[in-house]
Write a protein that binds this DNA or RNA. Sequence first.
DNA 1: ACACTAAGGTGTACGGCGTACACCTGTCAA
DNA 2: TTGACAGGTGTACGCCGTACACCTTAGTGT
Lengths: 243, 243
Amino acid sequence: MAQQIAVERRMRLSRDRVLRAAVSLADEVGIGQLSMRRLAQELDVVPMALYKHVANKEELLDGMVEVIVGEIDPAAGGTDWKSAVRLRVLSARRVLQHHKWARQVLETRTKQTPAVLEYMDSFIGMFLAGGVSVDLTHHVMHAIGSRMWGFTQELFDSPAIPDGEAQAEVPPGVQAVRFQQMSVLYPNILQIATAARHDDDSVVGHGCDDQFEFEFTLDLLLDGFERLHSQAWTSKHAGPERG
Amino acid sequence: MAQQIAVERRMRLSRDRVLRAAVSLADEVGIGQLSMRRLAQELDVVPMALYKHVANKEELLDGMVEVIVGEIDPAAGGTDWKSAVRLRVLSARRVLQHHKWARQVLETRTKQTPAVLEYMDSFIGMFLAGGVSVDLTHHVMHAIGSRMWGFTQELFDSPAIPDGEAQAEVPPGVQAVRFQQMSVLYPNILQIATAARHDDDSVVGHGCDDQFEFEFTLDLLLDGFERLHSQAWTSKHAGPERG
DNA sequence: ACACTAAGGTGTACGGCGTACACCTGTCAA
DNA sequence: TTGACAGGTGTACGCCGTACACCTTAGTGT
């Protein structure tokens, strides 16, 4: 009987419910107004209750990113890589537009969460499946990633596999296990990462020539501008390349 | 005599000293650790003293941006627009790399401060002086700006001239005066902005077709990727366009 | 039916934040 | 010398994230 009454009671909290509530609260009031206290209030719960489901606010934000990354359409099959990538990026953009706080949060994220890794892996997969070389795909990811998204940016700069521990603490063999896991979960990321570092000691090491990546994209854009300019391109008539 | 002792005393505060101290504190300890209280401590002063020189923390951050934008090299004269732009962007990048907090702060800035406007004006000037059309320059600024910088992004979306006031409050004729001021201070920005909106009612209005700008850049990149791919480009041998 | 256990929710408290407001103090012009 | 005003101070308020000890509830094995 007391259990019948319980039906009337507040639904039980869950990590998922917390994250979704956080996303819609941020949608409504902006990320600046999203506090643990306010979120708790929205869920009709005392602030500390949230900490049974997320470790702290950082993890909450990570979780929110996971939620919205999940809203991006999966890769479209059956077309050339270019159209597939185009569609996907536009879908991602739609999501980011809907959650206006996302760009800002993305910029500050440092941890690689599963949904993000999976998204990137599948993104890379579109190029590789289309026959684009691993080398070019690598640079392309830098160009697309850091400019459109912000959160690809650090993938190759810092270890892709989270290892907050100092290297000294990593037991021998653990690297190998992680490598194994990566190769199953995110084969494409691994391919890109290892190709980039094949003459380096570490496996998924710190690095990439940042300056090179930056100039790669810069020159790609500048060359594009120049081409349009020399064609007397005009926005009136068409998009790039069709002028 | 008491004045002789004053020589030994703490130097007087000034807006400039506050801003510079804030920049170097952020450089040292990161933006997350930059608080009014900590900054005051660094300046050997009580927290509230800072408020005699900056209105609030937002304005402090705006001021910090002003400071570092001032560190970007001026436009190089005597070369083609492409090289000039290239040099300038790389200079800007150097500055952003030196102040690691800058990207993040830039993303959250909403106000258009003079140094930023001046930088953009002169940036636009490089294209126009090189003979690039106003139309193309407009789109180019969107492409370069929002992707490399983040803070060009909103220039054409929100009014370039700060008007926190609701439109109703703006006395008639004030718009005209501002327009006049703009045309003197930032002629190039004005040119771009007005060209973009010549068939609209407002002068420096809200707008631009966001979606168009986004796809413009996306396609520019994708077309670039495709071209490199079809050339079997490789990072081993050269940068873009030289493969 | 009951006691046990772990997971989930609570209450209190602490140190930090930005900043409003009233107040002193030192400097300089008249 | 005086008076005004810019610049520095002290106190206080209401937010924030979250540590820690506690209580409640739901689900289990007997």
